[in-house]
């Protein structure tokens, strides 16, 4: 288990969660970060922020994921979209039992592409799959349909359930790995230095080392 609060990490990735209201963005995030379902979560107003430190495979260091959960209703787009900037990863979430939330996923994706970093990795997520596992009639978006749509638009794809925890950790962890790989490939073998430098730059911008930690580092006593 990686210490979540520590500032001991090598990479800092900003990730955004978008999708229609009620598809389960907040539940997915809570499940991932806290390891359990939220007990009492009302709708998201504006944006909610969370972080998690994750160890990359093959000793490639620790990533701090800064995750922004956004409000789903259209009316909030003006404030939530300000957060697409600088995002290097995004989950576009829909509800497998609601066709319209899937149709809107296209718009969410386009908006994401328009304002996020050009190399932003997007993963399409069909949530609430537990419900169709119990009652297949509820399914309104076929797996294949969504997969084809994701492939055609250069997105990863996964079906999840925040309720049963199906594929939730994978979706987030994989996204972080993809982002890392994209950065690696894009910047070449020595580009990773640059990536780290940039991460540090961003880290410096957003992180402030408390005097306490400063002291620990210098190891005075």
């Amino acid at each position: 288990m990686v210490d979540n609060s520590s500032s001991n990490y090598q990479h800092l990735f900003k990730i955004v969660l978008v999708g229609d209201a009620g598809v389960g963005k907040t539940h997915l995030l809570h499940r991932y970060v806290k390891g359990k379902l939220p007990t009492n979560k009302p709708s998201t107003i504006g944006v909610e922020f969370a972080t998690k430190n994750v160890e990359l495979r093959n000793n490639q260091g620790v990533v701090k994921a800064q995750i922004w959960d956004t409000a789903g209703q259209e009316r909030y787009k003006a404030i939530t979209s300000a957060h697409y900037r600088r995002a290097v990863g995004a989950l576009v979430v829909y509800d497998v039992t609601k066709e319209d939330t899937f149709r809107n996923a296209q718009r969410w994706m386009e908006e994401m592409r328009a304002s996020a970093e050009p190399e932003c990795v997007i993963c399409l997520v069909g949530n609430q799959v537990d419900r169709v596992e119990i009652n297949p009639v509820l399914r309104q978006v076929e797996y294949e349909t969504a997969k084809r749509f994701a492939d055609a638009n250069n997105m990863k794809f996964e079906e999840t359930s925040a309720l049963t925890n199906k594929a939730v950790t994978d979706v987030f962890d994989n996204l972080l790995h993809y982002i890392y790989e994209v950065k690696l490939a894009q910047e070449g073998a020595n580009g990773i230095d640059q990536l780290e430098a940039e991460s540090k730059k961003y880290k410096k911008l957003t992180e402030f080392t408390s005097p306490d930690e400063e002291r620990k580092k210098s190891g005075c006593c």
């Binding site: 922020f49 969370a50 957003t206 402030f208």
Partner: peptide, 13 residues
């Protein structure tokens, strides 16, 4: 006043 970006935002939210 002593908090990092992350801690300050989490606190305020």
């Amino acid at each position: 006043k002593e908090m990092s970006f992350q801690d300050a935002l989490l606190y305020l939210q």
